[in-house]
Design a protein around this nucleic acid. Sequence first.
DNA 1: CTTGGCACTCGATAGGGGCGAGTGCTAAAA
DNA 2: TTTTAGCACTCGCCCCTATCGAGTGCCAAG
Lengths: 347, 347
Amino acid sequence: MKGLVRGERSRRVLEAVILEYIKGGVPVGSRAIAKRHGLRVSPATIRNVMADLEELGLLYQPHTSAGRVPTELGLRVYIDAILKIQQLSIADREQIRRSYRGGVSRVEGLLQETSKVLSSFSKQAGVVLTPRLSHTVLKRIEFVWLRTSMVMTILVSQAGIVHNTVFEIKEDISQEELDKYGRYLNDMLQDLTLNEVKARLLEEMKKEKVLFDSLLSKALELSQKALQENIENSELYIGGRTNLLDNPEFADVEQMRRIFNAFEEKSKIIDLLDKSMSARGVNIFIGSESELLDMESVSFVTSPYASGDEVLGTLGVIGPTRMDYSRIIPLVDYTAKLLSKMLEDTF
Amino acid sequence: MKGLVRGERSRRVLEAVILEYIKGGVPVGSRAIAKRHGLRVSPATIRNVMADLEELGLLYQPHTSAGRVPTELGLRVYIDAILKIQQLSIADREQIRRSYRGGVSRVEGLLQETSKVLSSFSKQAGVVLTPRLSHTVLKRIEFVWLRTSMVMTILVSQAGIVHNTVFEIKEDISQEELDKYGRYLNDMLQDLTLNEVKARLLEEMKKEKVLFDSLLSKALELSQKALQENIENSELYIGGRTNLLDNPEFADVEQMRRIFNAFEEKSKIIDLLDKSMSARGVNIFIGSESELLDMESVSFVTSPYASGDEVLGTLGVIGPTRMDYSRIIPLVDYTAKLLSKMLEDTF
DNA sequence: CTTGGCACTCGATAGGGGCGAGTGCTAAAA
DNA sequence: TTTTAGCACTCGCCCCTATCGAGTGCCAAG
């Protein structure tokens, strides 16, 4: 990939085109580049270089007499080989931390706040994927009697996420009895991940068939039911959708509709974020790379966040391919680390 | 209000203009009305009537040589005095009920699903306001030890809504102890509304000062903390935002941005829905009536929903003032009743 | 290899003309 | 008195054309 752009000058020109394009959003011409960016050559020379870059597929012209616009590949090369990722400035970091003042008293709130921080600092949309229950450690399970034969189960994960499910049971069970099951299960299942819990339950149920211990058996049955529903859910917080409306490339309504549909649908975005959960550090998807087909001009910058060793979820920024990567990449990186730290400190 | 439109014919014409306008979204002319709508008079006559209606402020002309468009007042008169609200068809009702199949296992899910149902049947945005905790009956309170000095409180309301708060306490308390407090409080507080609970706690704390029963005192202190944060929260589920993009009146981006900002902000919409919570039956806010200033061309159709006698929250449809009230009003009405029934049956 | 010059391309913008939907008014008909 | 037909008029919309200018590619000279 790095070999794609040979000369130092080519690289400078590519960078210049991209910077100008990110700033202005319109195709950039040779003159503009020759003037700014201190390349001490004439526009004509720039034009030659640009023609080369176009041949390589890094730039393209919307029409014959227009300036150049970077292609996805061009952006990719820029990000991988040219952009030097800087630290976020002290001032920015301070300001981000300040956004969290006022104390956040629920993980859900913390995550939601994070999506807002991401959006307001990037001027794009911010997203935060909540931990998938199946990978997190169970902290507590609780049964609540609602009405005859209806029981609610509440699961609390190590990270402080609370899930609940309501379901019907064949015969009524009193709250006292439910409490007993709860105590029993809490002793047995604490500090296992939900996937382990599931396995453990199956195991115990087998034994149980032999022992006919009805307390245990009922407890197992209950928790089994509760787990079925809860384990694969994952929520997505989205902040600053409206920021996207300010991007001139989405003035065309059709494009806009696609993105907002994806926001509403969520599942596609969740899938994408899920993928980047296993990667370490910041991940970037430019335009069609995300394979969210029909999302040509949208980029994602994502990073997983964790608590201790346990990777919990992913957060990121969604914006037009033409976004200020040099600022957003460090932003996402820092925010992920900060969130990780906050989760660690609290839970 | 009813007196505003005297003649039977005036009324018919107003109705005709509104129906045509709702259908087409463009100013409607005298010819169109004379042709359809079986008023057996000439366009010229219609024009005279229209001129009268315009003088009354029920219609207006965007410009001299255009047709007429209903004003907010015109819509108001139409809804209050002309529109006969019909029942939703059996087929529609059946289909709505069917949308809820597949079992909904959490109230949150049920409410969210309802916002989707509202949006997909209205082709507009659907909203559902979750019960405000302060008015609902407490079903259960639970404390979970997270780490040294950090405790999570989980509140379950009668209606099956689960809230949680995390807070720091001065000295560490073991899970066993927390359980004890929980049991104690559950006995004491069950079946009071959270407002009553709050009052009760204060009362007990006074006694407590005298008795120096440290179990009770700590329990009270804990729950006090938990309540502070939780009691006034109210969430808003919004479904089908993108439906609004299809309305030609929002082709202009500025208008769109305002609405989506309100969706993001939420608090304004929550306030509005809150207001209509005390009203009985369907409530309609046309354009500026909502006093969500800068929301001129947006209407709300809302209705409270309940479980038993207890009014829990509000749901509704948000769309352009030009929406099909004759369909949406019964839709909102039916959905509110259906949701009420489902909540009642489950919790 | 670089540069200035130059012809050329093509989108964006503005102006002008015609079209047609719809009006208000008037005078005749009911 | 009310309704209707007729008619002149208004004005947004659409299409066409002309103009403008940013930016290009190419060529020949440095």
